[in-house]
Simulated assay, not measured.
Amino acid sequence: MLVILALASVIAPIVMALVELVKRSITTKKNYIPLIAFAMGIFIGIVSFPFTELEVTLRLWAGGIAGLASTGLFEITNYRDGLTKGGK
């Protein structure tokens, strides 16, 4: 489990940067951003085989965790003014 989280912490900033690149290059709905991040995380987890000796299923888990964590990581660094639920 510790190795999965370590790999996810390495993959998460990469996924965050790639998702930001996708958001700036193509027009997409904001609701699909976490799904795109999840898919990119899984893809990067699969192609990380030269850097780790983990099995494919463990790399998939690490990629999925990294994809979902990258969305949260971006939301933490994103400054927003105002309240939720239509509050001004």
Rank of each mutant, 00 (worst) to 15 (best):
59 R>A: 03
35 L>E: 00
26 I>P: 01
38 F>Y: 14
56 V>C: 10
53 E>N: 15
71 T>M: 11
74 F>T: 02
34 P>N: 12
28 T>S: 07
61 W>G: 08
73 L>S: 14
81 D>W: 15
73 L>Y: 15
69 A>M: 10
22 V>A: 06
15 V>Q: 02
63 G>V: 01
4 I>S: 03
79 Y>L: 15
11 I>C: 04
12 A>F: 12
25 S>T: 14
61 W>Q: 11
17 A>V: 11
5 L>H: 00
14 I>Y: 07
32 Y>L: 09
41 G>N: 05
23 K>M: 11
70 S>H: 04
87 G>W: 08
17 A>M: 11
12 A>Q: 14
57 T>D: 12
49 F>S: 11
75 E>S: 13
59 R>L: 08
17 A>S: 10
7 L>I: 10
71 T>I: 08
35 L>G: 07
61 W>T: 13
9 S>G: 11
5 L>V: 09
65 I>E: 00
48 S>A: 15
23 K>S: 13
61 W>P: 01
76 I>E: 02
33 I>R: 03
42 I>T: 08
50 P>V: 10
28 T>P: 00
17 A>G: 12
48 S>Y: 13
13 P>A: 08
60 L>I: 15
39 A>V: 14
15 V>W: 01
44 I>R: 00
74 F>M: 07
62 A>K: 00
16 M>E: 04
51 F>W: 12
41 G>M: 05
57 T>H: 15
24 R>T: 04
21 L>P: 01
3 V>Y: 07
35 L>V: 14
32 Y>Q: 06
13 P>I: 10
27 T>K: 12
76 I>Q: 10
54 L>T: 08
